[in-house]
Design a protein around this nucleic acid. Structure first.
Lengths: 248, 248
DNA sequence: TAGTGGTCTAGACCACTAT
DNA sequence: TAGTGGTCTAGACCACTAT
C-alpha cells in the first residue's frame, strides 16, 4: 500500500496557503497589481491574519511579492540580474563600474571581520568610502569600501574637497595601487538600520552580503562590503551575461 | 537641539531584543551551548513568546543561532566558507569537484527557467543528476544537474547500472563534451520539501540558490541548480581561498 | 513521558501612506 | 482621515526529540 513514513505529518496551513497564492499569482495577477489587503485575504482563506502573513513573508522572501506599509501588497516583477563583476575584474571607480561614490571618511574603527581581511592592527587608519548602486531607478545595493590609509594621499589634500570628490579621490588612489586580483564571498544577512534606509526597506530585511577583497602586490589593499536587496536582486557572475539575460 | 526627523519612531521590541541577545552571544556563550528555552527567555525579557521568536528568527537568519524542534536553541559556529568554483572552472565530476552523485533519471519535464537556459523545446529529453555536497559531516547543498540527452549515450547503455553509477555515466558524458565556460547566478530562495529533507532543515528554510550554466561549443550543455543552506554557508568565489580562510 | 520548538488563533494598537 | 502593513499579546495545541 506504499506506506510512506513521513507523509503522516500534515502540511502546515501557511505552507498550503503559500502554494495556493503562488499559483494564483502565476495565473490571475499581473506584475504591479495590488492584492486584497491582509485582513480580507485572511478572511477569504479562513485563517488568522498571522497565518496569512507567514505565507506572504515566504513569498516576499522569494521575490514574488512586495509589501509596503501604508500602501499594500503588490505582485513583484522578476528579480533583476545584477552583475557583480561586469567585466572580468572591474576595479572600483574604473569604467564599467556603476557604483556611485557618496562620501569618504577616515577612521581607526573598522569591524573586526574587515580588520582581519585587511591584516590591519589596532591604530591603523582606514578610509571608508560609501557607495550606492541604482538600477532602473531603484536602489539595489549599498557598499562600504575600506581602503588602507597607506595607499591614500595625506588627509590635508582631501579635506578641502566636497564629499563625493573626496570619495573619488580615494578611489583614484586605490586604482593607482595597481590592483591585480580579487576574491569574494556571498552570504545571507539582514539589513542594518542604515542599509535599510538606503535600500528603501525596513531594518532586518534580507540582504545578500558580498565581501570583496582587492589584492595589490600580494597584500589586501581594500575590502568592500556590499549589501544587495535579496528580494529584488539576482547576482550574476562569470564570463557572459547570458544567464542574466535569459533567466529574466 | 538636533531634531532628527526619523528617531521619533521607537525601536521595535524584537529589534532591541535581537541586539541584546546578540551581545550576550558574543560575551557569555560558547559555540554549541544551549540557550534557555523560548518560554523562559520570553519571561526573562518580559515579552510574549512570539516577540522573542521574532528576534530568534533574525539571529538564525544571520547564522548566529541554530534551532531544532524537540531539542532546543544552540549557539551556531561561524559559517563555513564553501568554494563554489574550487579551481577556476571545475567541471562536474572532475577532480576537485566534491559533489557526490546520487542518481540520475531521464525526463521531458523540467522547470521553465531551466528549459529556457538549455534552449530546449517541449519534447526534448533531459537527464537529471541529483548530487549532494557534504562538508565536515554536515550536508551543505543539494543539486539538480540538467544535461541535454543529446550529449548522453542511449538509455539502453545506462539502465543496467545502479543509481550512482548511472549518475557518474552522465557526468562522464558531460565532461567528454569539452566544456569551455560557465556562468552563474546567486539568489535567495526557500527550501522546497525535498531540499529541506536533504539539508536537514524544515521546508521554507532560507537557501542560497546558485544556478550554473555550462557552455560547450557555444551552446548550453547543462544547467545546475544548487541549493546551499543559507544559515551555515558562506559561498566563496575567486582566485584564492584567502577570504574563506581568513574570514572564519 | 517530559520538554522543546513550530503552528495557529483572535484580538489590540501603532507607524506610515495617501487623500 | 481612512486604509494599509508592522508589532505585540496571551493564550492553545501540535510535531518532534530524548529518555
Amino acid at each position: 500500500m506504499g506506506t510512506t513514513q513521513l507523509e503522516t505529518a500534515p502540511e502546515p496551513k501557511y505552507w498550503h496557503l503559500k502554494t495556493v497564492l503562488s499559483e494564483a499569482l502565476d495565473s490571475e495577477f499581473a506584475v504591479g497589481e495590488i492584492l486584497p489587503n491582509e485582513r480580507e485575504l485572511a478572511a477569504r482563506f479562513g485563517v488568522a491574519r498571522a497565518t496569512l502573513r507567514q505565507a506572504l513573508e515566504q513569498l516576499e522572501l522569494e521575490g514574488r511579492l512586495q509589501r509596503r506599509r501604508g500602501v499594500g501588497t503588490t505582485v513583484a516583477p522578476p528579480r533583476m540580474g545584477v552583475a557583480v563583476d561586469p567585466a572580468r575584474h572591474t576595479w572600483p571607480g574604473a569604467p564599467g563600474d556603476d557604483w556611485q561614490p557618496l562620501d569618504a571618511v577616515e577612521t581607526e574603527t573598522v569591524p573586526a571581520a574587515v580588520a582581519r581581511l585587511l591584516e590591519s592592527v589596532p591604530g591603523d587608519r582606514v578610509h571608508i568610502v560609501r557607495r550606492s548602486r541604482v538600477t532602473g531607478g531603484q536602489p539595489v545595493a549599498a557598499e562600504l569600501l575600506y581602503v588602507s590609509s597607506a595607499l591614500v594621499p595625506a588627509r590635508s589634500t582631501l579635506t578641502p574637497l566636497g564629499a563625493p570628490a573626496r570619495a573619488r579621490a580615494v578611489l583614484n588612489a586605490l586604482q593607482e595601487s595597481e590592483l591585480e586580483g580579487q576574491d569574494r564571498t556571498v552570504e545571507l544577512g539582514s539589513a542594518c538600520a542604515q542599509d535599510a534606509k538606503e535600500l528603501d526597506r525596513l531594518p532586518g530585511a534580507p540582504v545578500l552580503v558580498v565581501t570583496t577583497r582587492y589584492v595589490s602586490g600580494g597584500r589586501t589593499a581594500a575590502v568592500a562590503v556590499s549589501t544587495y536587496r535579496a528580494d529584488t536582486c539576482r547576482l550574476t557572475f562569470g564570463e557572459s551575461d547570458a544567464v542574466a539575460l535569459l533567466a529574466g
